[in-house]
Amino acid sequence: MLLLSWLAPVVLLIVWELLAQAGWLSPQVLPAPSKVVRTAFKLATSGSLLNDLGASLLRATAGFAIGGSVGFALGILVGFSRIAEAAIDRSIQMIRAIPFLAALPLVIVWLGVGEAQKIFLVALGVAFPIYINTTLGIRQVDPKLLELGRVQGLGTLELIRRVILPGALPSILTGVRYALATAWLALVVAETIGAQSGIGFLAMDAREFLRTDVIVLTIAIYALIGVAADGIARTLERRLLAWHPNYGSAR
């Protein structure tokens, strides 16, 4: 079955390669896969590809860390405190209704087109899914288990550590997965504007010179990083939710 599932993509690649080799596909439109691989190798050995990759990953990580922390902290606050919910939840829900990419022009006015703008945009995209899923997870903790915690004499902190956070974790991790996806989207958009490094910069630079091989390469890299991020999220879920019938390895 695994073999079969890989068959179609491989056939597609071969057909693409053959069409390009036969000259049916103009290299200006879509370069052959082999050409893209050669370009990747060339850029990698010259060092610029790794630099750009590093720059992109750094922005994504920084933005994720900042946005994730803010979203998580606010989520915890609103999840635990009705007062905090009354005070800030509606505002957050209203801001959330704006597609965060629509805020880009404003972000550029505020922060220019430097690193801050890119990290901010990623953080903005990450904070909401983490926030929403954290509050949701805390709300959904089984009240019967909370009551049990009290019966067993747990203090507030112990109750949070032993019952509430583990109970909210599946939801929080779902938020992390969404956040990873939006982080990439934010990065792609942010890097196409005024970047001096990064995968997005590479793509924009290549566009100027009609280097479709480089453009296709950057798209492939975005895809690969997306897959890798999803893999990390899945591994986290399998590890942390081993107890959960929907995630654990032993079904």
Binding site: L145, L148, Q152, E158, R162, W243
Partner: peptide
Amino acid sequence: LLPWDSLWRNVSLG
């Protein structure tokens, strides 16, 4: 029982 805790962790809760 807390589904995320092993049996001994459940029993020793609190």
